[in-house]
């Protein structure tokens, strides 16, 4: 097996998406379930903020020169990567504010709304970074779909862990989110099979990878647990969910086929 590359980016994307997922899901339930008292828990922005902070710290280690990370805002006019840093910076700032305010006992919907919008934008921009001609399989809507799925599943689950009283409400939502992840996991390679050579090779690389089948297996199990067995939310399940997300992201960063890998080979 080839060595796994880009672990810092795997961690950064998963953690930042978990953070945004928490914010988004909390916002969603505050809007639709306004009576739920524990929803405004400061632990929610607290955990999200922690995830984001750790994630951003991890991201520095994918740089050849981490100390130069601050300069990555230099090319905002064209570079989606610069914009990603800005977006997560902005989201982090609002999230931090929200956290501080809540620990002070203040629940300000406008601040939550701001972090909701900033988080959503950050994930979208983050997905846009990976949509480029180097990896034809990713030069599509798939990065956004993958990132959104991660945010959705982890956000819901973490919210459930922080607010156990919500668990029964969340369970069907988690089931739906898992079905979504399961579908995207297996649909993406099928979609790629109808693309150009690099996309088809990406699909084949996925099919040949143990990671693909392990993640698929975990997803089937999880989906089964939540759709048919109405499972409880437990730490073990959280670990399994996180593992499958990590594996999915390892696939994302290691099993995509670069356009240049197939120069000289027929498109057929």
């Amino acid at each position: 097996m080839k060595p796994i590359k880009e672990i810092p980016l795997v961690l950064f994307t998963i953690l930042s998406q978990a953070a945004v997922g928490l914010t988004l899901m909390e916002g969603f339930f505050i809007f639709f379930y306004p009576g739920e008292a524990r929803l405004w828990s400061p632990a929610v922005p607290g955990l999200a903020f922690l995830c984001l902070l750790v994630g951003l710290a991890c991201s520095l280690f994918h740089l050849g020169h981490p100390s130069g990370g601050i300069r990555s805002l230099a090319n905002l006019s064209v570079s989606w990567l610069s914009r990603e840093i800005l977006a997560f910076g902005g989201y982090g700032a609002v999230l931090g504010l929200d956290m501080v305010l809540r620990y002070q006992g203040m629940k300000i919907p406008m601040v939550l709304l701001s972090s909701f919008i900033a988080g959503l934008a950050a994930v979208a921009v983050s997905a846009r970074v990976y949509k480029n001609p180097g990896y034809p399989a990713l030069d599509t809507f798939w990065p956004f779909v993958f990132f959104a799925g991660t945010a959705w599943v982890l956000g819901l689950f973490l919210l459930g862990m922080i607010c156990p009283s919500l668990a029964s409400v969340l369970r069907p939502f988690i089931a739906v989110a898992l079905v979504f992840e399961l579908m995207t996991h297996f649909l993406a390679p099928i979609f790629w099979l109808s693309g150009g050579r690099a996309q088809r090779c990406t699909a084949i690389a996925h099919y040949r990878s143990f990671f693909f089948w392990i993640r698929g297996g975990i997803l089937v199990l999880m989906t089964g647990l939540f759709v048919f067995a109405r499972s409880d939310l437990s730490v073990l399940i959280l670990v399994l969910l996180t593992v499958q997300e990590l594996i999915g992201r390892v696939l994302f960063f290691n099993y995509m086929v670069h356009a240049a890998d197939h120069i000289g080979k027929s498109l057929e």
């Binding site: 020169h65 300069r71 990555s72 480029n132 001609p133 670069h258 120069i263």
Partner: peptide, 12 residues
């Protein structure tokens, strides 16, 4: 700064 984004992006 060695972020590798250009390496990922260039199709050639």
């Amino acid at each position: 700064i060695g972020c590798g984004n250009c390496i990922r992006s260039c199709p050639f």
